[in-house]
Simulated assay, not measured.
Amino acid sequence: MSETAATAPNLPEIDPASEIPPAELDQITEGLVAALKTVYDPEIPVDIYELGLIYKIEIDDSKFVSIDMTLTAPGCPVAGEMPGWVETAAAGVPGVAGARVSMVFDPPWDQSRMSDEARVALDMW
Rank of each mutant, 00 (worst) to 15 (best):
M1F: 13
A5P: 12
N10E: 15
N10Y: 14
N10M: 13
I14E: 03
D15A: 14
S18W: 11
D26G: 10
Q27C: 04
T29Y: 05
T29I: 06
T29L: 12
E30F: 04
A35D: 03
L36I: 07
T38K: 06
V39W: 02
Y40N: 00
D41W: 04
E43T: 02
I44E: 00
I44M: 01
I44S: 05
I44T: 09
P45V: 07
P45Y: 14
P45H: 09
Y49T: 00
E50M: 03
I54H: 01
Y55A: 11
I59D: 03
V65I: 02
S66K: 15
M69E: 11
T70F: 13
L71G: 05
T72R: 06
G75Y: 08
C76M: 06
V78K: 10
A79F: 05
G80Q: 01
G80W: 11
V86R: 04
E87P: 05
G92A: 04
V93H: 08
G95P: 03
G95Q: 02
V96H: 01
A97R: 14
G98I: 00
V101D: 08
S102D: 08
D106P: 11
P107V: 03
D110W: 09
M114Y: 06
M114G: 09
E117W: 13
A118Y: 10
A118P: 08
A118W: 12
V120P: 04
D123C: 05
M124D: 11
